[in-house]
């Protein structure tokens, strides 16, 4: 893989780890960093040795938000021409499971990046917030959309309007995160969980994600039709045969992702 300026990537077994690597800036996101994340994600998505992607922040925080310095001089035309959020759209097209491991501050763009993950494991010391309103702007990389779909309009408006920090317990209550772990064990527990997912049949994982994403964005009827096609499609895989045979033969299945 290419060498990056603002992230670090490692392959641990079949889990690919992407670490945000601007710890002194609390991993504040600049456009180059986002490009690097997207490039790394897409490469891991195509790499057949990779089954799960983990996203972590180095240092004291997952990410304290977007790099404000980059934006102070922006105007509507420069933003339209730069079209920086198009990169973020590509994150939504990653097919493999993405687990975010968050700790410390998860603010603004950092929160939006976390919401691009499929599952979130959170250290108990984590705080989430959309502080954009305090700067006279608003989230622009999916914050108003993804948060609302996740927690509903009422809480989304409250949090986006006040910029108030959301504690880990409240985030768990509202389904923003999947579980809370001790800060000391965030990486270990996340890799353990990733390891569990990596043992699942990859094509099932892929089509489950595809179908669940469909549910978020379309009518129930349309989603049901879509699900059905994906269900049928899995019967074309070797892993379906392996899974069902292993069940009958009372042994553990060994999935190949084919």
């Amino acid at each position: 893989m290419n060498s990056f300026d603002f992230i670090e990537t490692t392959l641990m077994g079949s889990t690919a780890v992407i670490e945000l690597n601007r710890p002194r800036q609390l991993n504040s996101l600049n456009t180059k960093m986002i490009s690097e994340i997207v490039v790394a994600m897409e490469a891991f998505d195509r790499d057949e040795n990779v089954r799960v992607i983990v996203l972590i922040g180095k240092g004291r925080a997952f990410s304290a938000g977007a790099d404000i310095d980059e934006m102070t001089e922006a105007n509507p035309i420069s933003l339209e021409l730069l079209n920086q959020f198009a990169e973020w759209d590509r994150l939504a097209l990653i097919k493999k499971p993405i687990i975010g491991a968050v700790h410390g501050f998860v603010f603004g763009g950092g929160f939006e990046l976390a919401l691009c993950c499929d599952l979130l494991i959170s250290a108990s010391n984590t705080e989430f917030s959309f502080p954009e309103v305090g700067l006279g702007v608003m989230p622009g990389a999916g914050g108003t959309q993804r948060l609302t779909k996740l927690v509903g309009r009422t809480k989304a408006l409250e949090w986006l309007w006040t910029g108030e920090r959301i504690s880990t317990e409240v985030a768990l209550e509202h389904g923003i995160i999947n579980k809370i772990v001790a800060p000391e064990l965030l990486v270990e527990e996340t890799l353990k969980f990733a390891g569990r997912l990596a043992k699942q049949p990859p094509l099932s994982m892929r089509l489950i994600k595809d179908s669940v994403n469909k549910a978020v964005d379309s009518s129930l009827y349309e989603g049901m039709q879509y699900e059905r096609k994906n269900f049928y499609l899995l019967f074309a895989t070797q892993d379906q045969k392996e899974g069902m045979n292993a069940f009958i033969e009372k042994r553990k299945p060994d999935y190949k992702g084919k």
């Binding site: 772990v181 001790a182 000391e184 064990l185 270990e188 527990e189």
Partner: peptide
């Protein structure tokens, strides 16, 4: 579960 994590630490 939290106890298990604490003991691990």
């Amino acid at each position: 579960e939290q106890e298990a994590q604490g003991q691990r630490i």
